[in-house]
Structure formats: structure tokens, C-alpha cells
């Protein structure tokens, strides 16, 4: 089931890129179109992949996460400030992860300890992150005159990265590489380790987990924190690999697209990654449509991922099943 979903989405990604190459007839050479599409797709997919993996940990353990956006936004700033103050990109990455985890701690505290509606709690974090980053940006950063520590360098894989067309795939920055590695790692952790088994049990039937001695709230807290850390890494992408500065609302809704990718990917690691690539390809097509002379208004291409997510959620094709206990606080008797 999840393998079929992965293959289906990947097929759509390839089809979309091929479509662009075929339709983009009155522009540059097909090679250039394809290479540009691939590069844009991957660039767009990295934070979405990380955001979706962040949501995966949260939701698999039974905590809804609509706060990926806020976590990434706060982390984008945290990473920038960390890197700029110490002039170390490595510290920047750590600062991003830590900032994400602080937001995650707030989410866990509100929704697990206080049993605040998890969607309300997510909303709180989104508003708080937008406000705080905006405030710090204009109030503190603009006055402090921080100097950016620059961007993380690309790590090319020898030979492969020199290939025509597919070259860009093998020429990426560290966070982008990490995202791809994490896809595999998260899959392994979630489906092949004790931690993953317990996490999924807590998200599916917390009472059953409780009766075999698993501490439900502890598992949820830890998973929210792990997820938030990954979201933090996703946030760091924006200011350490995307552009060497922090701008207000720099994440620009990518956290919500990550949530869509998570759902579209059926709450699986590879599925989410494929969905992130699909959204990336749709975005690449949207950006390049005009340049390539594609006769569809770019906005209709841009709508496509969201429409697909609704369709999947409504069960019209390939219904995605959420963890059964997601959204419900656990009460011990």
C-alpha cells in the first residue's frame, strides 16, 4: 500500500517534469529545461520534506501538528542569529534545531500536559512565531547590524554531479543531503525499531500501549520534541542554504505544504518525500511555466498539489488513513 503510493507519486513527479520538457518547446533546449526543473524541484522539496518528517513524528505519536510552519519560521531566525553571532554555520544549524525544539516543547506542554486542543495549540505557535520573529527582526536585528555567516556550500558527488541534466541532483547543500538521509533514517526508526513501534502504538491505541507498560505521555513528549528538532533543521535551510538573511515570513507557508505532503504521503516517510518532490515539481513548473512557454496559467499548476491533497483526504483516490488516536489527549483512569 505505502509502496504503491510512493511509486504513484514518484511517477507523477517524473510525468510532470517530462510534461514540462515536452510542452516547453518554444524555449531553450530540453536539457536545460529539465535541469532547471530538477534543480528547482529539489530546492523547493528540501524544507517540505523536513517539515513533513517533523509532522510524521508528532502525528504518528498522536499529536496533531499544524505548527510546522511556526516551528520552521522561528528556527529560520534562530539559525540565522546563531550563525551570525558566532560566525559559525554549524552553530547556526544547532541553534535552528534548538529553536524548533523550544517551539515543540511549548506545543507538547500545551497539548499534552494541559490538554489544550491540539489545533488551538498549533495556531498559538504559528501566531507566536510570526509575531516574535517579526518583532525581533525589526526591533533587534535591524539595529544590531548582524553580518550573515554566509551559506552552506554545496557538496557535489564526484562524477555524478558532472552528468548532464541529472547533475543538479548530485550537487546539493548539507541540509538538503541530510533531508534525503533522514527520509531513510526516519523510515527505519518508525517501522523497524522499538522506538517506532511504541510511537505508533501510542498514536493508534494509547490505552493498549498503556496496558503493556508504555508511558504514553512521555512517548508523545519525546516525539513532538524530535519532530520539532527536524522542523528546526528545515527552518535552518531557509537562512543557511536558501538566502543568507532572515526576512519576515521567510517560510511563506511551506510548513502547511509540508503538512499536506505528510497527509498526501499517507503518514509515511517515503510517501511524504515523494509528495514533497511532487509539490516541488509543481512549484518548479509554476515558476517556469511562462519562461518555458507552457500554455496553462501557472496558478492552475500551483493549485494542483492542494487539490490532490483534498482528493486524497476525502478518499476519492487512495485514501490516506491517519493514526487513529491523533488529536485526542490521553487520559489515564
Amino acid at each position: 500500500m505505502s509502496r504503491n503510493r510512493f511509486l504513484f507519486i514518484m511517477g507523477t513527479v517524473i510525468a510532470l517534469i517530462l510534461l514540462t520538457v515536452v510542452l516547453g518547446r518554444n524555449s531553450d533546449s530540453p536539457q536545460i529545461v529539465a535541469a532547471s526543473m530538477l534543480a528547482t524541484t529539489l530546492r523547493f522539496a528540501t524544507p517540505i520534506t523536513l517539515g513533513a518528517l517533523a509532522g510524521l513524528f508528532c502525528e504518528r505519536s498522536g499529536v496533531v501538528n499544524i505548527a510546522i510552519e511556526g516551528m520552521m519560521l522561528a528556527a529560520a531566525m534562530g539559525a540565522f542569529v546563531g550563525a551570525a553571532v558566532t560566525q559559525s554555520l554549524g552553530v547556526g544549524i544547532l541553534a535552528g534545531i534548538l529553536t524548533g525544539m523550544i517551539m515543540g516543547l511549548l506545543h507538547a506542554w500545551l497539548s499534552i500536559t494541559f490538554k489544550v486542543d491540539q489545533i488551538v495549540s498549533g495556531t498559538v505557535i504559528n501566531i507566536l512565531a510570526a509575531g516574535l520573529t517579526g518583532f525581533i527582526d525589526t526591533q533587534v536585528l535591524s539595529k544590531a547590524g548582524l553580518r550573515s555567516a554566509g551559506l552552506l556550500p554545496q557538496i557535489p558527488i564526484p562524477i555524478l554531479s558532472d552528468l548532464p541534466v541529472v547533475g543538479p541532483i548530485f550537487r546539493q547543500q548539507p541540509i538538503a543531503w541530510t533531508a534525503i538521509i533522514l527520509v531513510v533514517v526516519v523510515h527505519y526508526v518508525m517501522f523497524h525499531t522499538r522506538w517506532g513501534l511504541r510511537t505508533r502504538a501510542v498514536g493508534e491505541n494509547p490505552r493498549a500501549a498503556d496496558t503493556v507498560g508504555i508511558r504514553v505521555k512521555y512517548m508523545r513528549y519525546m516525539n513532538v520534541l524530535i519532530g520539532a528538532g527536524i522542523a528546526g533543521l528545515g527552518g535552518a535551510y531557509f537562512t543557511l542554504e536558501g538566502v543568507p538573511s532572515f526576512e519576515t515570513q521567510i517560510t511563506n507557508g511551506r510548513g502547511f505544504i509540508a503538512l499536506a505532503a505528510l497527509i498526501f504521503g499517507g503518514w509515511t516517510s517515503f510517501g511524504s518525500w515523494a509528495a514533497a518532490l511532487l509539490f516541488g515539481a509543481a512549484n518548479a513548473l509554476q515558476i517556469n511555466a511562462q519562461q518555458f512557454g507552457i500554455p496553462i496559467p501557472s496558478q492552475f499548476v500551483g493549485m494542483f498539489p492542494y487539490l490532490l491533497t483534498i482528493v486524497v483526504l476525502a478518499g476519492v483516490i487512495g485514501r490516506a488513513y491517519p493514526p487513529a488516536a491523533v488529536g485526542t489527549p490521553y487520559e489515564t483512569e
Partner: peptide, 25 residues
């Protein structure tokens, strides 16, 4: 029943009393 419907029989039985080889179940 205190079972997780989407888990296999083996997963349900080992849950909370897992044996591991290295990190893997």
C-alpha cells in the same frame, strides 16, 4: 481487546516487551 488494529500479530504481541538485534526489532 487492547490491540492495535493496524499492527501485525507479532507486533502486537511484542509491544512493550520487544526483543531487539542491534537497533532493529
Amino acid at each position: 481487546f487492547m490491540l492495535v488494529p493496524v499492527f501485525t500479530v507479532a507486533e502486537n504481541i511484542m509491544l512493550g516487551a520487544e526483543t531487539v538485534k542491534g537497533l532493529s526489532l
